[in-house]
Design a protein around this nucleic acid. Sequence first.
DNA 1: TTGTAAGCGTTATCAC
DNA 2: GTGATAACGCTTACAA
Lengths: 329, 329
Amino acid sequence: MTTIRDVARVAGVSPATVSRVVNGLVGYSTETQQRVEAAIATLNYEPDTLARGLKTKQTAVIGVLAPVVSDALASEIMSGVEAAARLHGYSVMLGRTGPSSTYASSYLRTLRTYRAAGVILISAAVTPEMRRVLGSNVPLMSVAIRDGHRFPSLAIDDEAAAYDGTRHLIAQGHRRIGLLAGDPASVLVNTVRTRGYVRAMAEAKLTPLVESGNSLYDSAPPALGRLLARDAELTAVFALSDEMGAAVVNELQRMGRRVPDDISVLGFDNTRTSLHVYPALSTIAQPLERMGELAVERLLASESLSGGPVPRILPHRLIERGSTARFIE
Amino acid sequence: MTTIRDVARVAGVSPATVSRVVNGLVGYSTETQQRVEAAIATLNYEPDTLARGLKTKQTAVIGVLAPVVSDALASEIMSGVEAAARLHGYSVMLGRTGPSSTYASSYLRTLRTYRAAGVILISAAVTPEMRRVLGSNVPLMSVAIRDGHRFPSLAIDDEAAAYDGTRHLIAQGHRRIGLLAGDPASVLVNTVRTRGYVRAMAEAKLTPLVESGNSLYDSAPPALGRLLARDAELTAVFALSDEMGAAVVNELQRMGRRVPDDISVLGFDNTRTSLHVYPALSTIAQPLERMGELAVERLLASESLSGGPVPRILPHRLIERGSTARFIE
DNA sequence: TTGTAAGCGTTATCAC
DNA sequence: GTGATAACGCTTACAA
């Protein structure tokens, strides 16, 4: 391994000067700079991150924690995080927290000892415990979930998004619209979205009809069954995740019902999954990649490395594909 | 931040002794150990990874590099990597290399300066350049792609897997079987699988029929069109990725052909995607999570931290779901 | 069984 | 404009 002293020796200067050149500080002649740069090039020198971090009490790593790593939603956010991190010269450290943030503390502790520059929590809320474990120097934020006002977060307006989705179905002429919600325990996302649906239904003087799954594919068919049992005349189902939406499309097909002719299906998230069914799933899009990128910007902004302020709430958007259609009595 | 000296002071011992206790070395009395542990607990001490790594020239970091982070195949492997890494007390550093390993060198350089314990390359072959950049101390291996014998890798036997898939369709009575291959540039995976298909067809005295996409969803419909243009009587399509398989199922449906009644579709990989279509995709399963776990084991075995030898070739397995059926003339 | 001290590779403070 | 030198927090000979 070649060190800063090797470079210094070859360039005929002191380690201090090499350090200045490497870090773009002031205090050396152009000629010295060239000699140092030449030496760096010939020796193929690369500063040691560990030594540097030990000295400066900072490393260019960003932690990303998600309940499930292989989940489509999390992957797309992670993809954005990775892109923005690389752009700024940061690296990404990945961790799975498990469904109830079980391993979060352990990862946070590790991240602290690595002197991470910041931590992003996907689909999970920051808790005081997490904040405590991480120490006060490291910025920590949630993405894809809206924490009250206690901790920073970046997400869409879930209430409005669900409201808009429901409004859209109503505008298409649907009157009997069932909601296939996610895990009721997920208050910050699921309860809030459900509220948006209920509000839209109430405003249109329609009867809300809600059944819950757990956001995953397999939970949808039984929940759909319960929905249909309560109202066999349903003409639209609003699923609060694309996985459930896809499952509903497929299950309906299996039951011999045509989508969207007999029944419309609307999903949520606009993950790749929404494109994998036929007809393709209409859905409420969250700007997932963008959320990942912006989360990084926010984190780096906290240490004033980057530009202006980053919004806390991002726009959602309805994407119409084949699974929804106008309902004519 | 509390350091080893703080602990030493509180416990009334030297930093060296604290270090011994922390690292489970020998050379201290039970009584000392208890005092040290008590001090650690009260101070909530956590050893600094950076300082330790600087000294020992090793950190508990495993690098994972994939062409695309948000890809289902890569995510599932990463999930296995994360699990095994955590189990052994390692952390995972994530990087996207881009389609042609464009950013690989840059990430490898970073990983070297972090003194990573090893690097896993998903769906990409190790090149001499990569090996050079990473330095000779850090183990590096490919997973989900079989490198010749030059660099370590962990994958299924792609030739045999494609052969078996084709044989299965033949055994079901299919005679006109089209192959929807991935990117022809991907020699190590795609060419090898194609060879397996061709061999099975030849052995059964059937005419191979091959068209290529790029493994992604969107590339499949046009390729399917070309396949059908060359033989309108096709009764089975073997797609070399689940994404393409799913696209074929959906496209066939759009064209008004019934799956599997009119035409069978077989996918490859057994990613979540194979479950997201109706009928669910029969597919050749790769043990993706397991591959990620085993890759970690292999890496750690190189530094003799772990148990016995890890296989280089993993078993594939045919999973029959709804998209394939027996063909009766 | 325990402590002292050197040193890992860097940066930052101070002289010159 | 440049160079000594002292940390950063840890491990590890070596001494005691």
